[in-house]
Nucleic acid binder design. Structure first.
Length: 502
RNA sequence: UCCCCGAUAGCUCAAUUGGUAGAGCGAGCGGCUGUUAACCGCUAGGUUGUAGGUUCGAGCCCUACUCGGGGAGCCA
């Protein structure tokens, strides 16, 4: 059935010829003798023009009353027209209605996030989600392509696992025939053993974390890709990570230009994402955070926000004044719509103004030894126009498996990659401790049961080599690239803390 | 777990100091031959999240609860 219909993305090939498309009614406008039907078919949007006299009267009336998201096929001549959404439109000669829809809940006007999440199964049809879904597909395709083309072997690591990468408090427990297991939070430990067989490996799958985090950066179930490489040092890992991320961004720019534009993403800044990325050590980052530069940066940001607030308030007051007077009806309605927008904007600015001094205080009081907080990462990230590596974190704040810097025992050979313009961490990685006895010490130091790690320690007994890897969060990457502020929009069916609709 | 904010028509939001609950969209009907979230006219649509309290009078004030949003810790 599918094969006999023309896909909307291919309409250009049918210029001045007849085509039949099959899809759903996305939106329609009628002007008495002429109707504009916007059809979506999963590959794009197409405006179909139905003119009275050129289609049977009965069909014309039927189309005029057709509800949003009704399914149908439309036949007509394909012609180029600048005024049309995709550049091409269909002059309708016939149509077959497959299913009539009434009262589709998601209208072309604005909706709140709660309503949209409750209707996620339908929301996936809307343009914004469709664009994000296409870009996510490209990101995942680019991830696999990059590793497959660079000599990495795919290893599927288990989802049921007894191993804990970090601490067990953030894991989802599972009753495995009476045995307590949990859902994986990383494939890394298993992957290390595979790296000793294949050299360069990666795993890619869902990951589960029971962190009680209610922020725009967190999901309890998300997708993560983790490469692991034998015979590599920290510099090698950074180089791998920057080439990898640059490749993903380049692929999205190449394949999803129109989707990026539809989403309002910053393609100019994205096209500058090329190696080398900025490199900071943790110690340098702390100096920046606690220093004058951050103080000035945040103070300037606060001034800008206050200015923005003042302007928005002025505009709101002006509009409110105008609404009190005698004005045309259409102007009154337009003002009301603008007021709603401005009030939302004002709310956001107020939250940022409220947070700014808190973040400034956290940054100024930052003590060497603590892990970087979310707001600290945001500040560093906002100061840069390209991704930033932060390396060499304090050993005490990090996981047991990270390799101690032999030149400075207080830090480990690890790194985070912060996406620019405030998006924050998208990668975390490290060189792994490869000395058997040092690793035993670290396991004991952190109060972990050494018996659980005998196989992991074996890797350091039989031909131990320097090795390392990292994990990249798919949804965070998609959010950064698309400019979407919340990662829940970057996966089809998000799992949030206390919130699973379907 | 902690801090801040919110809940009014199917949806997005108004409602002055506590004084008769309104608008747009959506739905239905009608009009309009090039619309871009089209436009114009008419119609229907409400126990203001729940329970209690203050008051002559509560959408608005107070208390508790439920649900949601934003942020913190932690992290990809």
């Amino acid at each position: 059935m599918t094969n006999s219909f023309t896909q909307i993305k291919n309409l250009a090939n049918f210029k001045d010829k007849e085509a039949t498309i099959a899809g759903w009614l996305y939106n329609s406008r009628s002007s008495g003798k002429i109707q504009f039907l916007i059809i979506r078919d999963g590959t794009g949007l197409c405006q179909c023009i139905a003119e009275k006299g050129k289609v049977p009267d009965e069909l014309f009336e039927e189309l005029r009353h057709l509800g949003q998201e009704s399914s149908l096929t439309v036949t007509g001549a394909v012609r180029k027209d600048e005024r049309s959404v995709g550049g091409y439109e269909l002059a309708v000669s016939g149509a077959e209605i497959i299913h009539t829809t009434t009262d589709y809940p998601i209208t072309p006007k604005s909706h709140g996030i709660d309503f949209l999440l409750k209707h996620r199964h339908l929301h996936l049809r809307s343009q914004r989600q469709w664009c994000i879904g296409k870009i996510r597909h490209t990101v995942i395709d680019a991830i696999r392509r990059f590793f497959n083309d660079n000599g990495f072997i795919l290893i599927d690591t288990p989802i049921f696992t007894a191993m804990a990468g970090e601490d067990t408090q953030t894991l989802f427990g599972v009753d495995y025939f009476g045995e307590p297991l949990h859902l994986t939070q990383t494939g890394q430990l298993h992957l290390e053993s595979a790296a000793m067989s294949f050299g360069k490996v990666y795993c890619f799958g869902p990951t589960f974390r029971a962190e009680k985090s209610k922020t725009r950066r967190h999901l309890t179930e998300f997708w993560m890709v983790e490469p692991e490489v034998a015979f590599i040092d920290l510099d090698g890992l950074l180089e791998l990570a920057e080439n990898f991320v640059s490749f993903i961004v380049a692929q999205v720019l190449q394949k999803n230009k129109s989707e990026l534009e539809a989403l309002g993403a910053d393609t100019a800044t994205l096209s500058k994402i090329r190696p080398p990325f900025y490199r900071l050590t943790y110690t340098e980052a702390v100096e920046i955070l606690a220093g004058e530069r951050t103080k000035e940066f945040l103070a300037k940001q606060l001034e800008e926000l206050k200015g923005q607030k003042e302007q928005t308030e002025k505009r709101i007051a002006g509009l409110e004044e105008e609404q009190k007077g005698q004005i045309k009806q259409w102007k009154r309605e337009k003002n009301a719509a603008e007021l709603i927008e401005l009030r939302t904007e004002l709310d956001e600015v107020n939250v940022r103004i409220e947070n700014n001094p808190k973040h400034a205080k956290l940054a100024a009081g930052f003590q060497w030894g603590k892990d970087l907080g979310g707001s600290d990462e945001t500040i560093i990230s906002q100061m840069h126009d390209k991704p930033v590596f932060v390396t060499h974190y304090p050993k005490a704040a990090k996981a047991f498996y990270m390799k101690t810097d032999r030149g400075n025992e207080k830090v480990v050979l690890n790194f985070d990659l912060l996406a620019p313009a405030g998006f924050g961490e998208i990668i975390g990685g490290s060189v792994r401790e490869d000395n058997h006895n040092l690793l035993v010490e670290r396991i004991k130091d952190q109060g972990l049961n050494i018996e659980n790690y005998t196989w992991y320690l074996d890797l350091r007994k039989y031909g131990s080599v320097p090795h390392g890897g990292f994990g990249l969060g798919v949804e965070r990457t998609v959010a950064w690239v698309t400019g979407e502020r919340h990662i829940r929009q970057c996966i089809a069916f998000p799992r949030l803390m206390d919130r699973v609709y379907i």
